[in-house]
Design a binder for these strands. Structure first.
Lengths: 351, 351
DNA sequence: ATCACTTGTGGGAGCGCTCCCACACTACCT
DNA sequence: AGGTAGTGTGGGAGCGCTCCCACAAGTGAT
C-alpha cells in the first residue's frame, strides 16, 4: 500500500530508504556511505552520494540517536550564579573557542544552567538519562559534587580549572602559577619590593596556584615573603576594596599590588585613590584576566591574559577524544589529559 | 529469548514498557500520564506516577522526538563575528534571562554560531531538517536572509531587535526611542543645549530609533536640531573616537554628547580628554547599555540601561507560545507579538 | 431493553535510523 | 577440485516512544 508512503511524502524530507531506492542500493549501504564506512566500493559510494545530493538528504538526528544510542551533542554546564563565569571576557571568549572548534563537527552544543537546586536536580536527571555524549564543566568549586557524578556515570567530561593537583577528570587550565610569577617578576623588575597580593577565592585551585606563583617569584628573587602582604579576596570588586583597606592598615609601605582579578584590582584602585596613593608612582597595580575593565581603567591596568578562547578549543579537543574512546579518562590511568596553556602579561601604565 | 531483554537490562535505564508493567497498565496509559493527558483516571495516574518514581524513569528524548516529530529544543542563533552581541553585558544577561525562563520547561537550549559562511550553511541545513522547534534570533542586520528563511520554513522564531518598524517576525526590543529621549532630556535638564549624538550602526533599526528619540526630544524642548551635531558611529570604541574628533572639528561648542553605546562613549571620552575638555564640566557624556565599562569609567558614565535579562525571558515566552500554536506568528496577521520593554537612565557623574 | 454517547484503557503500527547476520562473489591457498 | 578467507551488499530486527483505532464499561435518553 501507498498509505505509509503518503505520510512520508507530504512535506516530509527524504529518508534513508528513499535515497537507497534512488541510488538502486540497499538501506545498509546508504548508511555505510553516510557514516563513512570503508567497506563500500567506489562506484557504489559515488552513486549514493549523487542520490543524497539530488534529494537533499539530511539524516534524521532523532532516529540516529535512538538506533545508535548516542546523541551527537555535548553540554556546556554553566554554574549560573557564579557571576565570575558570566563576567567578561571569560564566558564569551570561551564560547567563541568552543564554537569555532565545534564548527568542524556534527556535534551540537547544549547550554545547561546549573544554578538553583532545581536546575541541578534536572541536570542530574539529564545526565543520568545520557542525553549528551559529553560534558564541559567550567569554574567548579572544590566541593562541587558534579565532577564525581560525571565520572560515576562514566560520562566523558572535561573540566576547566582542575579542582586540585590530583584532578581525576581531564582538564584544561591556564598556567596560573606562571601567570602570577610573570606579574610579580614584572613588578620586581620595576623596582618594587613591598609587593602585596590580593588573592582570589582560595577554594578555587587556580587562586591557590596564583599565590604559589607569587610566593616563589619573590623567594627566587631573594625577597622575603611577608605574610602581612597577602590578603584573601574573592575575585570581586568589593573584596578588592576590603582587602586593600586591610593591606594599607597592616603594611602602609606597600609599593605594589598584584590582584587575582581585574575587578579586584578595580576595587583596590579605588581605595588607593581615596588614600591619596598615586598609581603607578606610589603603588604599582597589576590585575588578572585582561578584561575590558583593564583596558578602560584609569590608568589602564597591566594584567595577565589567559588564552581563554584557546582553552575552549582545547576542552573540545579533549572531550571529543574521550567521546571517541567512549570512556572517561579517569579509567585510563595517568595519560596526558591535563592541558595547561601559557598566559601573557599585558603591560599598561598602572605599573 | 532473553537476548533483547539482556540488552535492555544491563545498565540500561527503564523504558515506558517497564513502567507500564510495574504499574500494571498498558503503554498508552503511561504515555498519557507522562504527557499530562486529562484522559486518565486519578487512580491509574497515581499508580503510574508511583512506578515512575520507583524506577526513576526518564523518557528517552530521541525516541520521543522520532515518534512525535518534535525536538523539545530551541536554538539561540548567535551571529558570532558580531562582537557587539558578545560584548558585556548583552550576551550573558540575555542568556541569564533565557536560562531562567527555560528552567520551568522541558525545552533544552542549543547554541548555534552563524558566523562564517560555512556555519550559516550548516545552520540552514539544520533548520531545513527541523532539528529544533523554534529559534531565537539576536542582533540581526536589516539585510540578513535568516529571518525570511525562518518564516519560509514556518519555523517559530522570535527576533530581538526588529529589523524595521514592519518586522513580520515576533520580536522583543527595548524602547530605543524612549531610552534616547530620556538621555537627551536628562542632558537638557542639566542645561546643555549643544547636545551631539554619536549614532550606532544605522543599518540596525534600534540605532535609527535612538536617533529619532534624540531628534524629537530636542524638538519637543524647542531646541533646533543641528545636523552638524549628529555623527554616525558603529557601536565601537574606535568609531566613537573617530566620530568625536569629527564633532569637535565641526562643532567646537558642543557641550554634551549622547553616544549610542558605552564603548562608543569610552572612545569619545578619550578624544575629549586629549582635547582638554573636562567631563562633565565642559562636556557632559551619556552612554547606552550600562555595561561594566560605564561603572568603571573615569568619571563613571551615565548610561541608559536596557532590561536585557527580561528581554531574554520575554523572547522565550513569545517563542513557547508560538511553538504551542504550531505556526509562526507571521501567518497569524497582526496580533500583538511585538514586545517593547522600558529602559532606565542610570545617572552617574559624567553628566 | 435498545441505542448512542462518553470515558478510560490496551496495544498494533509505525517514526527513520543502525547493527549485524546472511549471502553472494572473488581471490588465493593446498 | 575443494577449501578458506576476505569483500561488498541486502535487509531483518529493533531502538523507545507516540498516535490512533478498537474496545470495555458506564451513563443517560428513548
Amino acid at each position: 500500500m501507498a498509505s505509509h508512503g503518503a505520510r512520508g511524502r507530504s512535506g516530509g524530507r527524504p529518508t534513508l530508504e528513499e535515497v537507497a531506492a534512488r541510488a538502486g542500493v540497499g538501506r545498509g549501504t546508504v548508511s555505510r556511505v553516510i557514516n563513512g564506512s570503508p567497506r563500500v566500493s567506489d562506484a557504489t559510494r559515488a552513486a549514493v552520494e549523487a542520490a543524497v545530493a539530488e534529494l537533499g538528504y539530511v539524516p534524521n538526528t532523532a532516529a540516529r540517536a535512538l538506533a545508535a544510542n548516542r546523541t551527537d551533542a555535548i553540554a556546556l554546564v554553566v554554574p549560573e550564579p557564579e557571576t565570575r563565569f558570566f563576567a567578561e571576557p571569560y564566558f564569551s571568549d570561551m564560547l567563541k573557542g568552543v564554537g569555532s572548534e565545534l564548527a568542524d563537527t556534527e556535534m551540537q552544543l547544549l547550554l545547561i544552567f546549573a544554578g538553583s537546586d532545581r536546575e541541578r536536580e534536572r541536570l542530574a536527571q539529564y545526565l543520568a538519562a545520557h542525553r549528551v555524549d559529553g560534558v564541559l564543566l567550567v569554574s567548579v568549586h572544590a566541593d562541587d559534587p558534579l565532577p564525581d557524578l560525571l565520572s560515576q556515570l562514566e560520562i566523558p567530561a572535561v573540566i576547566s580549572g582542575p579542582r586540585s593537583a590530583a584532578e581525576s577528570l581531564a582538564s584544561v587550565d591556564s598556567d596560573n602559577y606562571g601567570g602570577a610569577r610573570s606579574a610579580v617578576e614584572h613588578l620586581l623588575a620595576r623596582g618594587c619590593r613591598r609587593i602585596a597580593h590580593i588573592t582570589g577565592r582560595l577554594d578555587v585551585y587556580g587562586a591557590q596556584r596564583r599565590v604559589d606563583g607569587y610566593r616563589e617569584a619573590l623567594r627566587d628573587a631573594g625577597v622575603a615573603v611577608d605574610e602581612d602582604l597577602i590578603e584573601a579576596g574573592d575575585f570581586t570588586e568589593d573584596g578588592g576594596r576590603r582587602a586593600m583597606r586591610e593591606l594599607l592598615r597592616r603594611a602602609p609601605d606597600v609599593d605594589a599590588v598584584f590582584a587575582a582579578s581585574d575587578v579586584t584590582a578595580a576595587g583596590a584602585r579605588q581605595v588607593l585613590r581615596e588614600a591619596g596613593r598615586r598609581i603607578p608612582e606610589d603603588v604599582a597595580l597589576v590585575g588578572y584576566d585582561d578584561s575590558a575593565i583593564a583596558r578602560h581603567m584609569e590608568p589602564p591596568l597591566t594584567s595577565v591574559r589567559q588564552p581563554i578562547e584557546e582553552m575552549g578549543r582545547a576542552m573540545i579537543d579533549l572531550l571529543l577524544t574521550e567521546i571517541a574512546d567512549r570512556r572517561p579518562a579517569a579509567s585510563r590511568g595517568l595519560e596526558r589529559h591535563q592541558v595547561v596553556l601559557a598566559t601573557e602579561l599585558v603591560e599598561r601604565t598602572s605599573s
